[in-house]
């Protein structure tokens, strides 16, 4: 049951990521096609702060960060747990990935919040 819930959460994250990552690529990597702006213009420090100060972007970035980290590390866990190693290894892998995920989420949240408050 626990594994089913973890899988369902990953499934929900994929749906969110499909839209958010698609939009992220459109904005940051294909801005000339979608926004009529050069990539360099989209990535200036001023443009970065202008976007980051908006509440909508704050919410989107945090959702994006959480969904991408969860889905990515959940997938990595699945790969690592398939390795033919000792049973206790599974608990260590899961624990280590939770720590890594929380650390990166905390750092990403701090950077996002710092931008929002500039």
């Amino acid at each position: 049951m626990r594994e089913t819930r973890l899988w369902l959460l990953s499934l929900a994250c994929t749906t969110l990521l499909l839209f958010l990552l698609g939009a992220h690529f459109a904005l940051m990597h294909y801005s000339p096609v979608f926004y009529g702006q050069t990539v360099e213009e989209t990535r200036t420090f001023a443009a970065l702060l202008e976007r980051g100060r908006q509440t909508a972007f704050l919410v989107i970035y945090l959702l994006f960060l959480a969904a991408a980290l969860y889905h990515g590390l959940y997938g990595l866990r699945g790969i690592l747990l398939e390795l033919p190693l000792a049973r206790s290894y599974g608990r260590w892998v899961s624990g280590a990935l939770v720590v890594v995920g929380l650390a990166f989420f905390a750092y990403g949240t701090y950077v996002t919040w710092w931008t929002f408050t500039q």
């Binding site: 997938g75 790969i79 990403g108």
Partner: peptide, 25 residues
Amino acid sequence: GVGLIVYLLLHIIETGQRLAGEGAW
């Protein structure tokens, strides 16, 4: 998938470069 998760972790660190100011960014 492995490539994307490795990139994501690097990307989070890289976007944190803004904390060092406009010059570094």
